[in-house]
Design a protein around this nucleic acid. Structure first.
Lengths: 161, 161
DNA sequence: CCTAACTGTTAGGCTCCCTAAGTATGAGTG
DNA sequence: CACTCATACTTAGGGAGCCTAACAGTTAGG
């Protein structure tokens, strides 16, 4: 009990409230995704591939693909879990697996055209639902939310080993 | 595409960023819970029972318990899912199920002393982990987070039918 | 070489959630 | 009072997602 610097009451209260908010948000995200044909986990995977292809590939005209281990790390899951999702996405025609020319152990996962379209459309739909919710907030509330998002992002990065 | 009031670009961007933050936060919550003996779903259930017993029961000296349907609604899951969790918790000795004297169809779920202790301890431990993370933020960042928490709470309530 | 390290996949198992169907009780109506 | 309908929960069966352990192939270092 005394190994930590003993956080003060305010910090603990903030921790409690933030945890509570996140706990409920999990159910919110579930509902947001409930309608679409892409599950949350699969959308996350596709989104990650999309983001990575935007960074480097478009400049060079050809996507490299992302390695399975990298996907797993980015998603915060173990490699077998990533493999499972990738196989499902491959069966659905949304991604393609190719051998890495430089390292035959590695696998390069790439979005197909269908995958690209699917992630864009799913994102658009979910964003619209969320926008509907956020639209009912006051300007001040939206501003408070916007100010906190980078902080939440920073917190999330903390647990990324 | 034109059935909604067509939210402006800022609102859509906020929606996107917030969704992204929540998506990652799910993994954060998972890790926060990874160590303890109580799963996130079970802790949520116990927490709900704890909260409800604090409100009314302590004043009257005796807890009423919470009905299964109410637990399900509060947790955002279907009734059978709540039943499942409750049965597990009962087997673990953390809750007790009793017939409602006024309505024999209904079941009243109550925390046992062990359940009370378990939820308190699990919460304390997770809060400490979270406090460790939040402690590394700047004052301004913590303030931004604190300001947004009630807003997130409000958003979560939106999807509570 | 030949062993050690690394990248993925497979196998098996767990939790959590859902829908559909079943049981039992309560409430309204002729 | 009986009949019907609604309500409250449980049971049964199944799917998604994650995990660990064990395996196979590839690469790299001694």
């Amino acid at each position: 009990m005394s190994e930590h610097p003993l956080p003060d009451a305010g910090l603990l209260a903030l921790s409690r409230d933030f945890r509570e908010a996140l706990r409920h948000s999990i159910y919110l995200v579930r509902r947001l995704d409930a309608d679409g044909e892409l599950s949350a986990a699969q959308l996350s995977t596709l989104k990650m591939l999309l983001d990575s292809s935007e960074g480097s590939a478009e400049a060079r005209g050809e996507a490299n693909g992302v390695r399975v281990g990298e996907i797993a790390r980015n998603l915060g899951v173990k490699v077998p879990s990533a493999t499972e999702q990738i196989i499902k996405l491959e069966r659905a025609g949304l991604v393609r697996r190719e051998a890495d020319p430089a390292d035959s152990r590695a696998v390069r996962v790439k979005l197909t055209a269908e995958g690209h379209a699917a992630v864009e459309s799913a994102n658009t739909r979910r964003n619209a639902v969320m926008a509907g919710i956020l639209g009912s907030l006051s300007d001040a509330e939206r501003q408070a939310l916007a100010a906190a998002i980078p902080v939440i992002g920073k917190i999330n990065e903390t647990l990324q080993p």
